[in-house]
Design a protein around this nucleic acid. Structure first.
Length: 279
DNA sequence: ATAAACGCCTGACGGC
DNA sequence: TGCCGTCAGGCGTTTA
């Protein structure tokens, strides 16, 4: 499910920003970890992972691209939710003293001494968890953060010029730019009035600047709405009610009224206004 | 260098 | 009701 705004929303929630301070994982001590599906661990054996996180304290939570990063008193946990991952911070014991059962597809659980636990639910088993002494081991190859002010229009134009690729797959390549996924890429290209198959090196400086502006706009709007909730994977945000093209095949373009068209680009469902976004 | 094809997994949904 | 194809917010590897 999650792209940059959804991961940002989760990170803020785990810092206590939304559901209240008791759901924060900051300064919580990890009492134990349950590895319910071994494949979840990308670079550790279950026994080694559990031993290394036990009795560690979570000092900070942050996001890089679509990765969630927990800095521990020693070592770092990194989580990528991929398509269907979700995190649940919840009480272990309910008010009547009964233990709350784990859910179907819970793959890994961090148990805190505070009486809460963080469950990593992951139906499709695509998501992964890493443990690293240095987070750069995992994050090192990521492209720039789209919301980082150090990335200016001129710089972005230069990056686009370095490739002769279709815009949409390039923007979704995490080595090129970190955090864009299928939805926000479609929305950004629509807002910039650029066709997803346009070659990246054919953009003018003005078009590159407009694209960067559009990327930032849709990401910031996504964050402001606490992300998007779609289908059976629900996160609590409502940005899905503000999509202009994604999932709106056959509906009128808000700008010109032309029917939104669905095509396949880079093996991904892609939504455009054929009038506003000319090839 | 670029991109298509495929694999990894489970679940929802629509058509028959 | 069940079966079947299609689709799904991601990404790595292989192939062309």
């Amino acid at each position: 499910m999650p792209e940059l705004p959804e991961v940002e929303t989760i990170a803020k929630t785990l810092m206590g920003a939304h559901g209240g301070a008791e759901f924060s994982i900051i300064d919580r001590e990890i009492q134990d970890a349950l590895v319910l599906w071994e494949g979840t661990l990308a670079n550790q054996l279950p026994g080694d992972f559990i031993a290394r996180v036990k009795n560690k304290i979570i000092r900070s939570v942050w996001r890089r691209g679509k990765f969630l990063v927990f800095t521990l008193s020693k070592d770092t946990i990194l989580i990528h939710l991929r398509m269907s991952g979700d995190l649940r911070m919840e009480r272990i014991i309910d008010k009547t003293g009964r233990e709350i059962p784990l859910q179907k597809h819970d793959r890994l659980v961090l148990v805190f001494t505070s009486g809460f636990r963080l469950a990593f639910n992951n139906p499709r088993k695509f998501g992964r968890v890493w443990l690293a002494s240095d987070p750069a081991e995992i994050l090192g190859d990521l492209g720039p953060e789209p919301l980082d002010k150090a990335l200016d229009a001129g710089c972005f134009h230069g990056l686009l010029q370095q490739h002769k690729r279709q815009l949409k797959p390039l923007l979704m390549n995490q080595h090129f730019l970190a955090g864009m996924g299928n939805i926000y890429t479609d929305e950004a290209l629509y807002r910039a009035k650029l066709h997803p198959l346009r070659r990246s090196n054919t953009l003018s400086k003005e078009e590159s600047a407009s694209l960067l502006d559009s990327i930032r706009f849709v990401l910031q709007e996504g964050i402001r709405h606490n992300g998007a909730s779609i289908d059976w994977v629900y996160r609590g945000g409502d940005y899905q009610n503000h999509f202009n093209v994604y999932g709106r095949t056959g509906e009128p373009c808000p700008e010109c009224g032309t029917q939104i068209k669905r095509l396949i680009v880079g093996q991904r469902g892609t939504h455009i206004c054929p009038h506003c976004q000319q090839a």
